[in-house]
């Protein structure tokens, strides 16, 4: 450029794109956008609690999960997100063999909790579910007292020999679930009489009463109001100090708030696994981006 070029010779002003130019769109993303053969990001971690390799799930002839490989790290909170029908709940239910209850469901692949093969035919499923507990979408307390709801697991697993031991387990479990203060004076009234949020925390207390290593949560807050949800999320953060947690959620804000890593599922495949912060600010795959920004779902 010439030195001392007069200002009026300067090329056209940049206010032009403001007036005329539409927002730049090249190609769209939709349900048919191809899913990568291998997930992008970091599906594997250094010290896995659960190692899941080439997991495939079929309902009859219908394949619901297509070869997913993923680690769940010790004491991490892994959230699984994705549109309805993407297989995230199905995948979660493989992790403590809840899918066994569905006759037509077949699971293939290698699934390990530390060194234990989850699908070893000799494995006692009840034992397994004590190590890998589950919290469901709707709070489902037993039609028993608050005390008995929490004491049920330790009783059947023989974790307490004396009444005082059982009392202690019930108290600490309710404390860890953040429910103790609210129910300590009515331990023998029915669990079903609690509010929805309290019932869900009761279910969490019931789950942790048997000292599991992993807690699976399938949309644990979708039936709860924002306050109860906040309490559960707070609880998840505290529980992650002692437990490994895998959570399926439809609330992306919840995944962003509670988890260390986030896995995005799409049409029965794993698209992306990354640190949660990365997924929600700058995801690697455009399908993940499209989903979390609400471009399809």
């Amino acid at each position: 450029m010439d030195i001392a070029q007069p200002l009026d010779k300067i090329p056209a002003s940049s206010s032009e794109p403001a007036a005329g130019k539409a927002i730049n769109v090249k190609e769209g993303v939709d349900q048919d956008t191809p899913v990568p053969a291998k997930p992008v990001g970091n599906p594997f971690v250094d010290d896995p609690k659960m190692k899941l390799r080439d997991v495939e799930v079929f309902y009859g002839d219908e394949q619901a999960i297509h070869g997913i490989s993923l680690d769940i790290g010790k004491n991490e909170v892994l959230s699984m997100i994705g549109p309805s029908g993407c297989g995230k709940s199905t995948f979660l239910r493989c992790l403590n063999r809840m899918n066994d209850t569905i006759d037509i469901c077949r699971v293939k692949g290698s699934l390990h909790l530390e060194d234990q093969d989850l699908y070893d035919p000799k494995l006692d499923v009840v034992e397994l579910r004590a190590r890998v507990g589950m919290v469901f979408q709707k709070p489902n307390p037993f039609p028993k007292s608050i005390y008995d709801n929490v004491a049920y697991g330790p009783r059947i697993h023989g974790l307490a020999n004396r009444r005082s031991d059982l009392d202690e387990i019930v108290e600490t479990s309710l404390q860890k679930a953040g429910l103790w203060k609210e129910v300590k004076d009515r331990l023998h009234s029915p669990g079903t009489g609690l509010s929805g949020g309290q019932q869900q925390r009761l279910c969490i207390a019931r789950t942790i009463a048997v000292s599991p290593e992993v807690i699976l949560m399938d949309e644990p807050c979708s039936a709860l109001d924002p306050i109860a949800t906040a309490k559960i999320e707070e609880l998840i953060a505290e529980l992650s100090e002692n437990f490994t947690i895998a959570i399926v959620t439809h609330s992306m804000q919840q995944a962003a708030r509670v988890s260390n890593r986030t896995a995005y599922f799409h049409l029965g495949k794993l698209v992306e696994v990354n640190d949660t912060e990365k997924v929600f600010t700058n995801p690697d795959h455009k399908l993940t981006e499209a989903y979390i920004t609400g471009r399809f779902g």
Binding site: I23, N24, V25, K26, E27, V29, K286, A290, G294, R295
Partner: peptide, 15 residues
Amino acid sequence: MDNLNLDQHISRQFN
């Protein structure tokens, strides 16, 4: 990602 697709939200109001 060069393609920001700002007009592709399910919510048109968000677009």
